[in-house]
Design a protein around this nucleic acid. Structure first.
Lengths: 336, 336
DNA sequence: TTGAAAGCGCTAACAA
DNA sequence: TTGTTAGCGCTTTCAA
């Protein structure tokens, strides 16, 4: 049988309370007592029973991570980082998928309310501020582009990152930059791209902004197909995600453009497949480890009693330059 | 406060035992009693406290899924399927990564032994039969290519699937098939490829088998680079995974081969990015949902008392034909 | 078929 | 600073 707290107490010649104090790092434990207890723990190979602890504490020991799709490597590696960060707070992470649909995001929020979980980290795509009006008392932190005044949030500076990306395109001699992403004004990555153009006294013409509804490569490909069919000049494309970029490259090449010789392409996310693509994909790499850590910190802070205080944390990012934006550029190529 | 079992019992005018019987679907409960209880449950919105239940049952409510890397979409979608299947058995799934290293796989096995979990599903890469000599009493089921006599296993017919893939290449007029995968004799996908060749009276020459150590696109690319440098004829490549295939295509195209015109390429796994690649990738699609379901069933069976009985289950697969194996083939192309 | 009550292993109020 | 003990909410043995 596995040793219990009582066994440790007996062996150390102290009470259960004392052992509990040691395990939970309470202050006010004399050094000699502490060492007696830790020795007993070692000798017995004692490990606390999580179910019992959670029951006594009124915790469930589980937090939920909601992401659009786990089979998008960006979210998968985010999930792994969160699992690691949550372990330190002795939380299991339960992963759920939303497919980016508002109905599913609402459903998760509803689950948070019925409080069989200790907290929720939600990577939000379609949720609106109003949906959070009567937010659950369960600790909640949102990830992703959208940031609401009423809820903790962890993200990166999407606009700043996009600005960096587009500046890079412009710095390497590109002139006609297409931006593939979400709705203008709403999508911070599009906003950032616009501002980089503005810095050079240029504007993002309506034709140069391709608004996509979905996240897959096919969405990027179709958008680019439509753009190219219209016959506009282009020598660079900034995409809001790497997956979109893969589709965009497919479209460009099927239309006879060379990448990066004729058109440079920049993605966003830094997924492992970027290196297997032809050309390898330049991108923005968010610091996912930091994001995960900040999310767990937020949950822990909300768990502590005290006046609620909403915090919006910003994690780092960096630009990764690879083949797809090599500086061979002329201006405004046409199909070969 | 959340309603407890006792509240339900009081409201229904029965004992806790009776409510417990209803909840756990015990036989021998009169229909009238059952309906009284279910009504009370509905009215109160009662949900069992999982920690308490696990404590009483001596369960932890958690099973572990060990995969090489979660940011490989194959494993990510497998993970999601397992989460769904495990939910039915009211298990949380804790995901762990092994990076395919034997040391990490052994560490997980060790964790299974110290039994803070109810079961383990391990997608094994490097583990050996001997490592399982004193296997933990915790229910364990292995996924992946390797199958050991002493442990439950769920997989697909890798050799059969590979045979299907290579037959497809041969049926579309290809003659010089390169196989990229693990060690000959050990890797069932290589074995299956060989047998497909044997059916046509051909053999897999040593030069035509590229043994790779890793799983990434770069590994595939390097292997293909080396092969092409040697100047052998080739008009088809079968790769043990899609990721390898992406690297192989990169190499081929950088060496001036057109895919599929000069060389057809076939992958294995069916990851979402196959559709964003140029050309879109033909592949083998294992039935991951079935794999997950069978794995959970195995765990449940092992949990039940009774004589241990090892079972090896085989899930379905199908071939998915896309652009990368379009039937335009001549025989044995050379660089343009 | 249903009820009473003793745990499951840990936490934390209250005492000492 | 440490000990005693009453829960946390559910399962399950034994009786009825």
């Amino acid at each position: 049988m596995r040793p219990r707290l009582a066994d440790v107490a007996a062996r150390a010649g102290v009470s259960m309370k004392t052992v509990s104090n040691v395990i939970n790092d309470f202050p006010h434990v004399s050094e000699s007592t502490r060492s007696k207890v830790t020795t007993a723990i070692e000798e017995l190979g004692y490990r606390p029973n999580v179910s019992a602890r959670n029951l006594a504490r009124g915790r469930t020991g589980v937090i939920v991570l909601g992401v659009p799709r786990l089979d998008m490597p960006y979210f998968a590696s985010l999930a792994m980082q969160l699992i690691t960060a949550a372990e330190a707070a002795s939380w299991w992470v339960q992963i759920r998928q939303t497919r980016g649909e508002r109905a599913n995001e609402l459903r998760l929020l509803e689950e948070a309310r019925d409080s069989r979980i200790d907290g929720m980290v939600l990577s939000v795509v379609a949720l609106r501020e109003a949906d959070l009006a009567d937010r659950p008392s369960t600790p909640l932190v949102l990830l992703g582009e959208h940031r609401f005044a009423s809820v903790d949030h962890v993200g990166i500076d999407n606009a700043g990152a996009a600005r960096l990306a587009v500046r890079h395109l412009l710095d390497t001699g590109r002139r006609h930059v297409v931006v593939v992403g979400g709705r203008r004004g709403a999508d911070q990555r599009v906003v950032g791209a616009e501002s980089a153009l503005a810095e050079r006294g240029e504007t993002l013409g309506p034709a140069m902004h391709l608004a996509v509804e979905g996240v897959t490569g096919q969405h990027g490909e179709q958008a680019m197909d439509a753009f190219l069919a219209a016959g506009h000049a282009v020598d660079a494309v900034f995409c809001a995600t790497d997956w979109l970029a893969m589709g965009v490259i497919r479209s460009l090449r099927l239309h006879g453009y060379r990448v990066p010789d004729d058109v440079a392409v920049m993605g966003f996310d830094d997924i492992p497949y970027d290196l297997a693509a032809l050309p390898t994909l330049s991108t923005i790499a968010p610091d996912r480890e930091q994001i995960a850590r900040l999310a767990v910190e937020s949950l822990l802070r909300q768990e502590r009693p005290g006046p609620p205080e909403v915090r919006h944390a910003v994690a780092d990012h960096r630009i990764v330059v690879r083949e797809s934006t090599a500086a061979t550029a002329p201006g405004g190529a046409t199909p070969t």
